[in-house]
Design a protein around this nucleic acid. Structure first.
Lengths: 144, 144
DNA sequence: ACACATCTTGACGCTTACGTCAATTATTTG
DNA sequence: CAAATAATTGACGTAAGCGTCAAGATGTGT
């Protein structure tokens, strides 16, 4: 694996990607079983990933981290590899993308609100904490 | 349930909240079993929720939608109801809040990136679509 | 007080997203 | 080329987050 080619690698083994991305090989194979990936195989049937596959894996990873299901991620990814001549699917794809976009924007708003609340709570807690510096309950004087 | 008191209700049954928030009663009870709620009980052991409980449920709901686990949500919620005199827990709480804040900010960034990608993909798709306006495959004229 | 709607606690079921062997086959390396 | 290392499929296991009965206690309207 990894013919130290000039510049960037072109093909990766499953463990290459596993190590690089911090995903288990099981997870990667599972994603494939759900149709999120379709790597080539060597003559010996070992999976061979391209940079595109790696990019897809990164997207899957991000999607998961952001709370999307593998099914949702699959739907989105499929939009990117439908044959552009499949006009019938076009409108449907646009529709789906709009829906996801709406969801994403909604989540951004919600997360922003949560951020504000957390930040406020944190500031408040920190202030109270600093005021309790040498608290009145413990008469133990720590030096200085 | 709901003694049409003047102004706002003060107590809710589990199905009140279930209906109002769109959560199953099973889910609500499950949250309680994990310690996320602690409603009072009637003499007959039926759960009685306050407005605060409702607020907590809303937070749980938001947290779930944003991809947090019930355990993470529980940790955060517990920060809000520790007795403020529990100074020992203070530092820990501040630490935890900081961590969550970091996570939230990270997710906001990731989601923003995703938003941009989706928006770009959508614009691109829409343009191509509009150029295929009356596509050469279908000679069916819809009136007007 | 009666009937009917609600609620309560189990307990088992199900889906998602993998973890963890196990038995084989490929590939790599000394 | 033999031994060690890595990959493959299959099958079973698991944790989270509820859904879905079931059987009985409680609440409500008349």
């Amino acid at each position: 694996m990894a013919h130290h080619d000039r510049g960037e690698r072109v093909a990766f083994s499953i463990s290459d990607l596993s190590t690089e991305l911090g995903l288990s090989t099981r997870a990667i194979r599972y994603y494939e079983s759900l149709g999120l990936l379709n790597p080539d195989r060597t003559t010996g049937n070992h999976r061979l990933y391209t940079r595109k596959d790696r990019a897809r894996l990164r997207m899957i990873q991000r999607g998961r981290m952001l709370g999307f299901t593998l099914q949702e991620i699959a739907d989105l990814l499929h939009l990117y590899d439908v044959d552009p001549s499949e006009r019938v699917q076009y409108a449907r794809g646009i529709e789906l993308t709009r829906k996801h976009l709406t969801t994403v924007r909604h989540r951004i708003r919600e997360l922003s609100l949560l951020e504000q609340e957390l930040a406020r709570a944190l500031a408040e807690a920190e202030e109270k904490f600093s005021q309790l510096d040498h608290d009145p309950m413990s008469d133990q004087r720590v030096e200085k």
